[in-house]
Design a protein around this nucleic acid. Structure first.
Lengths: 157, 157
DNA sequence: TCGCATTGCGCAATTG
DNA sequence: ACAATTGCGCAATGCG
């Protein structure tokens, strides 16, 4: 994330101090007073053919073009950023909904499960009651088959 | 919302057009050229001597103070905005996690349920077999021990 | 009317 | 060289 701090008096890496007092002029264009610290002397190994960085030259056609392109890019970037934030918010809503849906389902399943379990227990008790105490006419049938195995299940056989 | 253009000839609603794209490369400071469109024509009930809005007067102490305050407010607002976006993103992650948790639980419950249901079916068949007095002795004896059904059920969680 | 909060926008520095 | 990001200031506008 670049630098942690950046104040008004930004020092250009080329050796140019931009003194920006208080002249922003409504974004139109401020004229940052450029103070050449060393006019072509301080820097080193800079293409001598053209002082490329010495002055932004607001007039320059090239400058204006660059600016315009950048402004466009900035706008685009910000639009995306906003869109993204919006999508994220949307996502939150969707996830919340889905969560509720899932919780409802869980509730339902839990209930079903609990009912079935109760049935099982009840049944088990019935079986116990029937098997142990006395033989009703119903037990007759079971008895008939002699090998009535009531739920003694073991893995494998 | 905002206009789709990206130029700066911003026409102030006050009746002031800001033109001027700068014209001096070696000057000192540049003040936005304010061009009063209708000098006292549209406005009403305003002391002519003290037009407060005519020129921001960048030098003005008051102006600077206002600006500084606003800059501060802007900074604050943006900070909050960012924080909010971040929180939202965080929320998405949390919800996603929770979602997975819930889905896992649903899966588990579904499985349990399915097992219990199978048990029920099986049992029902057994009962049917037993109830039916008809059985040939070979019918239920050994052939019928199809599946092992052993399952522990832990109550609650 | 004042004063903070938001928002759109342009500039410049950085990043990729 | 160039687009995308990002921090920042300005001004308009929203809002109480």
């Amino acid at each position: 994330m670049s630098k942690t701090s950046q104040q008004k008096p930004s020092t250009d890496q080329n050796g140019v101090s931009v003194i920006q007092t208080q002249a922003h002029t409504s974004g139109l264009q401020q004229v940052p007073q450029l103070v050449p610290v060393s006019p072509g002397g301080g820097g080193k190994a800079m293409a001598p053919s053209k002082s490329k960085k010495s002055s932004p030259d607001k007039e320059s056609d090239e400058y204006r073009q660059r600016r315009e392109r950048n402004n466009l890019a900035v706008k685009k970037s910000r639009m995306r950023s906003k869109q993204k934030a919006q999508d994220t918010q949307q996502r939150v809503n969707e996830l919340k909904e889905e969560n509720e849906r899932l919780e409802a389902k869980i509730k339902l399943l839990s209930k079903e499960l609990s009912v079935l379990k109760d049935l099982f227990l009840e049944h088990a008790h019935n079986l116990a009651d029937n098997v142990q105490p006395q033989a009703t006419e119903a037990s007759n049938t079971a008895q008939n088959n002699n090998n009535n195995n009531n739920h003694h299940h073991h893995t494998g056989q």
